[in-house]
């Protein structure tokens, strides 16, 4: 038996727009069925099967509930495998990136916790907008290249929000 597609595992059609609450409900139902806790007493082979099924369920859930990962997975499903890091030819976005990073550095130097909160809110708005653009773009097969570019932007913002979390940690010291 091969690995079923993450969407199929949840009995969903591949799509970017996803009801995350519903996905969580499904996840919990499926986890109940395959979690190793239900096989605590079973022999080694059955425990291994449960472990593997549970692990792939968790992997699928992690991928689908995170917007950039979901976008990337969708693109990979319908096209050639995508390298994780590429040089992006996206000058406008590049400018924005540089600006955002500089802003973040200034916040760090100024030890500005309130500013970081503000930055986080901005980042959230930008991510939401980007997700919406991707969703629209994804519905039109002719715009695949654009979808890929948007996905790279999503990945970048995701990485940036990770860095914001690390900054928060440092400022907490």
């Amino acid at each position: 038996m091969g690995t079923p597609c993450h969407f199929a595992l949840f009995d969903l059609q591949p799509s970017f727009r996803l009801d995350l609450d519903q996905l969580a409900v499904r996840y919990r139902e499926l986890a109940r069925a395959v979690h190793p806790d239900r096989f605590a007493d079973a022999d080694a082979r059955e425990q291994r099967v449960a472990l593997e099924k549970s692990a792939s369920l968790n992997e699928a859930y992690q991928t689908l509930k995170n917007a950039p990962q979901r976008a990337r997975y969708l693109l990979a499903l319908s096209g050639p495998e995508l390298p994780l890091e590429v040089t992006v030819h996206d000058p406008d976005f590049l400018m924005q990136q540089i600006q955002l990073r500089e802003e973040l550095e200034e916040l760090q130097d100024a030890d500005d916790i309130e500013g970081v909160l503000q930055f986080k809110r901005q980042l959230k708005v930008a991510s939401d907008e980007l997700n919406e653009s991707f969703a629209v773009c994804w519905d039109d097969p002719a715009r695949r290249d654009e979808a890929e570019r948007l996905m790279r932007r999503m990945q970048f913002l995701d990485k940036l929000s990770h860095e914001v979390r690390q900054l928060e940690e440092r400022l907490d010291d």
Binding site: A55, S56, N58, E59, Y61
Partner: peptide
Amino acid sequence: NTTIPVAR
């Protein structure tokens, strides 16, 4: 904070 079981 990755949910277990997990294989990667």
